[in-house]
Nucleic acid binder design. Structure first.
Lengths: 164, 164
DNA sequence: TCCTAATTGCGATTTTATCTCAAATGCATA
DNA sequence: TATGCATTTGAGATAAAATCGCAATTAGGA
């Protein structure tokens, strides 16, 4: 039965899940990734759980959450618009941008004049009234780069200072 | 001096809280805003509650949450990196950007080739390894613009200061 | 100062995310 | 193809974050 697994056009990035020993590709993880790829919006973990549970009855909610975390660290999946478990706030002042660490979720302000006058969203955003914008750079902060024990690639992160 | 905020006394945007009847400026709201302005990071609602409770013992957690919501809608405060109460995910594909409605938190993808080759964060981001970036346009979606025409409670909705 | 609408505080409730640990599974190796 | 072992899964409890309803209080215009 696994011989026809590729029939579904192997979801991009799946192979990245197993760079070496340590990140097994389970049916649950595959199902979560396929469920995510099948949507065109930005589903929450719970929405994905609903989707996956339809194909894999009995799957645990925790498994979906864990699968997403693993895949985020492997770079296969990305968090959209998120900063840890809680919403964060700021007072809008002069234009600034954000550096976001994909490993520890830290958000740091960045002032970069070269980015302060970008073109607008264009006609594709008809009906959307733009009030402001900012650029988000996703990457790995210096601290995480250090605490990550020489990763074989750019994946396989470790949770060392994940708390709050 | 008035063009740019940074003062502890007159917190920028506070006057925007009372565009007309309907958004009273309470001591609690002022305290929340001042607590937020006093920080240089991006605190959570709970962190702000801790800060405010030091000056206003007895203030309710719910009040802090509500004050933040009101101020977000008034444009005095902004949510950083947030999409409703839950984290959202996506499979990273070709470069795209996001339109984010500050009223309903909807996130819509936007493809805009003019934004696909922006300059990097520069030297200010020393030590930060950039993996990807995207532009977030904050504003009001068409749906919310319609339903906010003559709001029963929040009158004018917000003041525009786009070129800030 | 008076009056009215809006806000506050409190506690309960909902939503979202994480944890523990025995049992099951993936996968490298032979 | 079978075997061994580290890793993952499932289930429910638990923690964390956010919201809700209502009576008492307060802000702000007249």
């Amino acid at each position: 039965m696994k011989s026809h697994a590729g029939r579904r056009a192997a979801v991009a990035g799946l192979e990245g899940l197993c760079p070496r020993r340590g990140l097994p590709l389970t049916v649950q993880r595959r199902a979560v990734l396929e469920a995510l790829a099948a949507r065109r919006d930005h589903p929450t973990a719970d929405q994905l759980y609903e989707d996956v549970a339809r194909r894999l009855p009995g799957i645990s909610r925790a498994t979906v959450y864990r699968a997403l975390e693993v895949m985020v660290r492997a770079g296969v999946v990305r968090k959209v618009w998120y900063a840890g478990a809680a919403t964060r706030f700021e007072v809008p002042e002069r234009r600034h941008h954000h550096l976001v660490c994909v490993l520890c979720d830290a958000v740091v302000d960045l002032h970069q004049p070269a980015l302060d006058r970008l073109p607008g969203p264009g006609r594709a955003a008809r009906g959307f009234r733009v009030l402001d914008y900012s650029v988000q750079f996703m990457g790995v902060c210096a601290q995480c780069a250090r605490s990550t024990k020489t990763p074989p690639r750019q994946s396989s992160g470790r949770q060392s200072h994940e708390g709050k």
